[in-house]
Design a protein around this nucleic acid. Structure first.
Length: 468
DNA sequence: ACATATGATTCTGC
DNA sequence: GCAGAATCATATGT
C-alpha cells in the first residue's frame, strides 16, 4: 500500500497529451517506506521518470515509450489500482443521475406526436389523425380542399421531424463512438474503466435526448398551430347559403311541434343543402352541421319566439302556398282529368318531407291570432291573407311538397278559413291538434295552440338574444 | 366601430 | 349519446 501511495504521489499532476489525470485522485500524504527491494524500486523509478519526461520527447519517442509502458508488467496492477481509487473518489459526483426515470413531459410529447400522426407508423398515419381530429371536433369539416392542405402541411412537419430526429440520432451515435474510442484509447494511459465509459455514453445519450425533446416540443407546437389554423371550425365559420338556411327553416317551421329530425331526415336535409350549395364555392353541409343548426334553432327560437315570429309566418305561408299549389294542381287534375297534368309532379319523392298540415296550420294560427310573445306586431288576418296572396305568385320552389294531397288540402282549408274568416266546418279534420312548447319550455304535443306561447314571455317582453 | 346574427364548441344533466 | 344551455368566435349589417 505504501508503494501505491508513493506512486500516486509521483503521478499526481502529470499530464498526458493534455489530459489531466488529477481529477478524482485523492493523494494520501507521503510517508516512510520499508520492505521494498531495490530492484523494484528502481523499476518504479524508471516508469515515473519515463512518464515525467514523456511530454518532452518527440512523438515517435513518446509513442515508443508509451508502448513500453503499456507492455510493462506492472501496468495492469497500476491501472486497476488507479481505477479503483478514481471510482471511490468519484462516487460523490455521480449517483444522483443514475438511471433516468421516464420523463412525464417527454411521454406527453411522445403521445401527442403519436396521436397526431407525426411519429408512429408511416403511410396514411397523418391523414388518419387528421380525420380523427376532424371527427373529434364535431365531424363538421368535410372540406376536402382544406383537409388536403392540412395533410400536406402535416406531412411536411412529419418529414422535418423525422429527418431532424435521424440527424440527431446519427450525430449521437457518431459522437458516442468517437468518445468511446477516445476513452478507450486514453484508457491505455489513464485510469478509465469500462464502467466509466459506459457512464459517459449514458451522459451523452441524456444530452442528446434533451435536444430531441426540444425538437419534439417544437414539433408539437407546430402541429398545434396547424390544427388551430385548419381544423378549428370556429375560425373558419361560414354562414350557410340562403338556400340551405331556407331548407332548414322550412323543415323547422313545418315541424314546429317536434323539430327533432331523425337521423335519416338530417341526412336528407344535409344532402339537399349540399346540393343547393354545390353550385357555388360553398362547402357541403354535414349531418352534424344540421344537428348543430337544429340545436341552435330550437334554443334560440324558444328563447325569443317573438323574434322569430315573422320568420315563422313567412315559412308557414310558404308552406301554405306550396300546399295551395299542390291543391290547385290536384283540383285541376281531377277536374280536367287531363292526362297531361303532371300528377307525378306532386308525388312525394321522399316521405321524410311530408308536410304536416296540423303543424303548419298551427304555426299560422299561433302566429296570427295568439300573438305568441305579446308585443310582436301581429299582422291582422287581412294582412296575412294579402301576404299569402302575394306569395301565391311567388315562384318559390324550395318547399318540398311532401304531403299527400289530402293533408295539403286540409292545410289550405284551415289557412283560408282562419284567414278569411270562413266558418265552415271543415268536414272531419280531426287532425288539427296543434303542438308547441309546454310550460317548461320543452317541445311536446298539446291540444291548445296557445301553448306555443312561452309563459315567461309576457306581453311586450320582446327581448333580444342576450346570450351573446 | 359597434351590434347583431350565426355556426360551432363545451359543459351539464338525463 | 342526445338535448339544452351557455359561450365562443367569426360573419354580416349598420
Amino acid at each position: 500500500m505504501d508503494e501505491q501511495a508513493r506512486i500516486m504521489q509521483a503521478l499526481g499532476g502529470v499530464s498526458l497529451a493534455g489530459h489531466s489525470i488529477q481529477g478524482g485522485m485523492a493523494l494520501p500524504p507521503p510517508h516512510g517506506h520499508d520492505g521494498i527491494d531495490d530492484g523494484r524500486k528502481q523499476d518504479i523509478g524508471d516508469i515515473l521518470h519515463q512518464i515525467m519526461t514523456i511530454t518532452d520527447q518527440s512523438l515517435d519517442e513518446a509513442q515508443a515509450k508509451k508502448h513500453g509502458l503499456n507492455c510493462h508488467r506492472m501496468k495492469p496492477a497500476l491501472f486497476s489500482v488507479l481505477c479503483e481509487i478514481k471510482e471511490k473518489t468519484g462516487l460523490s459526483i455521480r449517483g444522483a443521475q443514475e438511471e433516468d426515470p421516464p420523463d412525464p413531459q417527454l411521454m406527453r410529447l411522445d403521445n401527442m406526436l403519436l396521436a397526431e400522426g407525426v411519429s408512429g407508423p408511416e403511410k396514411g398515419g397523418g391523414s388518419a389523425a387528421a380525420a380523427a381530429a376532424a371527427a373529434a371536433s364535431g365531424g363538421a369539416s368535410d372540406n376536402s380542399i382544406e383537409h388536403s392542405d392540412y395533410r400536406a402541411k402535416l406531412t411536411q412537419i412529419r418529414q422535418i421531424y423525422h429527418t431532424e430526429l435521424e440527424k440527431y440520432e446519427q450525430a449521437c451515435n457518431e459522437f458516442t463512438t468517437h468518445v468511446m474510442n477516445l476513452l478507450r484509447e486514453q484508457s491505455r494511459t489513464r485510469p478509465i474503466s469500462p464502467k466509466e465509459i459506459e457512464r459517459m455514453v449514458g451522459i451523452i445519450h441524456r444530452k442528446f435526448s434533451s435536444i430531441q425533446m426540444q425538437l419534439k416540443q417544437s414539433t408539437c407546437e407546430a402541429v398545434m398551430i396547424l390544427r388551430s389554423r385548419f381544423l378549428d371550425a370556429r375560425r373558419k365559420r361560414r354562414n350557410f347559403s340562403k338556400q340551405a338556411t331556407e331548407i332548414l327553416n322550412e323543415y323547422f317551421y313545418s315541424h314546429l311541434s317536434n323539430p327533432y329530425p331523425s337521423e335519416e331526415a338530417k341526412e336528407e336535409l344535409a344532402k339537399k343543402c349540399s346540393i343547393t350549395v354545390s353550385q357555388g364555392v360553398g362547402s357541403t353541409i354535414t349531418v352534424s352541421q344540421v344537428s348543430n343548426w337544429f340545436g341552435n334553432k330550437r334554443i334560440r327560437y324558444k328563447k325569443n319566439i317573438g323574434k322569430f315570429q315573422e320568420e315563422a309566418n313567412l315559412y308557414a305561408a310558404k308552406t301554405a302556398v306550396t300546399a295551395a299549389h299542390a291543391v290547385a294542381a290536384a283540383v285541376q287534375n281531377s277536374q280536367t282529368n287531363s292526362p297531361t297534368t303532371p300528377n307525378s309532379g306532386f308525388q312525394m319523392k321522399d316521405e321524410e318531407f311530408q308536410l304536416d298540415s296540423a303543424e303548419s296550420k298551427n304555426t299560422l294560427l299561433t302566429n296570427m291570432f295568439t300573438g305568441s310573445s305579446g308585443s310582436f306586431n301581429l299582422p291582422n288576418s287581412g294582412d296575412m291573407f294579402l301576404s299569402m296572396q302575394s306569395l301565391n305568385g311567388d315562384s318559390y320552389q324550395g318547399a318540398q311538397v311532401g304531403a299527400n294531397v289530402q293533408s295539403q288540402v286540409d292545410t289550405l282549408r284551415h289557412v283560408i278559413s282562419q284567414t278569411a274568416g270562413y266558418s265552415e266546418a271543415l268536414g272531419g279534420n280531426t287532425m288539427y291538434s296543434p303542438h308547441g312548447l309546454d310550460a317548461n319550455g320543452g317541445w311536446h304535443d298539446t291540444t291548445t295552440p296557445s301553448a306555443v306561447i312561452s309563459p315567461t314571455e309576457g306581453p311586450g317582453s320582446v327581448h333580444s338574444d342576450t346570450s351573446n
